[in-house]
Design a protein around this nucleic acid. Structure first.
Lengths: 197, 197
DNA sequence: ATCCGCTGTTCCGTAAACGGAACGGCGACC
DNA sequence: GGTCGCCGTTCCGTTTACGGAACAGCGGAT
């Protein structure tokens, strides 16, 4: 016999609601009303309302029209692991955001999260490598293993990481931070991740 | 007077055709036939065919179902790593790298370059917005217009940017930095009274 | 008080993206 | 030769995302 329609459901969900939440957050940040943004983007208010509330499944064109007026790339509102963690340890999870190749040095910018609890020790990098950490949430104790420093929200740490170094979150809160690695010359930690497809 | 004809056209196009080309390339890489991928993803062959040929404007759900079966994030098929500057002024050029949406706040991470010469003044942001700048090349003088601070390579600046603020590169060298903007998360009608966080 | 103007939601007809089926084309096997 | 299976495209009816209009709620001006 004919099968009934074979389960139109597809995937757990890309986070349909999350996209709407991000759009709404970005819109509010800019002080735009829903009506205003809809007019700017050339889409109906019903469309934007439904999108923000997760009751519609927008087309690429619609979503692009909106994010363009918000001044963000499409990828900024898409949920999910746009970038997969490239460094994962007991406490530290880092995601490569960007690679800057300059004349004198190469920079790798990571978003880093450090879970509360015992810290994590990382081996030495190549000579001349420096790390710059900007904490924007939580309290981080990090630096050379024999002389770490502490930074809280808004704080900044910097050290030469050609020696073993440690990361640890103080307190109960997960640490959110950005990590900037500076390599002299042009050697890269992850040569195949430059995304210059 | 009446609205002018409502200009149904939106934007130059995010590269509708490009998305299709990338999907097709990824599919062929994996040795999948169109029919096979359509079946895997649970979408109609007509849908996938039209998408690859650029004659359809897919919904997020459709595109996600397909990219998931290709084993790539949605962003892999969207207009690539083309980050265009989103802020441009006399001295400052900034590129939005990432948006982090947290429970209490939203963060926008920029890569910023400040050209040597006269600085640039930026208007106040909304209340509660803070800026965190990490300098990794050059000498930057920035902060509230009436009380800027100076940071050199490896330095860090932080200020509340609900007042006009300025950026200027000291010396002849262009300043390279990362800029983290922190927006208080949900726009609350009443300020938080609990004082936590 | 009434009126605005604006917010965001909901209703509704239209346009189009959707899945399924049918199509022509091609290679393998009988 | 015919037949099968799969390829990718096209046709077609259904579903739904779309924009416009109407709606209730609210703050400010008169």
């Amino acid at each position: 016999m004919d099968q009934p329609p074979p389960q139109r459901r597809r995937t757990p969900d890309p986070g349909a609601g999350e996209v709407g939440e991000r759009v709404r957050a970005l819109r509010r940040q800019r002080g735009f009303s829903l009506s205003h943004l809809a007019r700017l983007a050339g889409v109906g208010k019903a469309t934007l309302s439904g999108l923000e509330n997760g009751t519609r499944n927008p087309t690429l064109e619609t979503l692009y029209a909106i994010t363009a007026q918000l001044g963000v790339p499409l990828t900024a509102v898409l949920s999910g692991p746009a970038h997969e963690p490239v460094v994962r340890g007991a406490a530290v999870t880092a995601t490569l955001l960007e690679v800057f190749t300059e004349a004198e040095a190469t920079f790798e910018l990571y978003r880093m999260r450090v879970a509360p609890g015992p810290g994590q020790l990382s081996p030495a990098h190549q000579p001349g490598v420096t790390e710059h950490v900007t904490v924007f949430s939580g309290v981080l104790r990090a630096g050379p293993a024999d002389a770490p420093s502490t930074a809280t929200t808004g704080g900044h740490l910097r050290w030469v990481s050609d020696v073993p170094h440690s990361y640890a979150a103080l307190g109960d809160e997960e640490v959110q931070a950005t990590l900037l690695l500076r390599y002299p010359g042009r050697t890269r930690l992850f040569p195949n991740l430059d995304g210059s497809a």
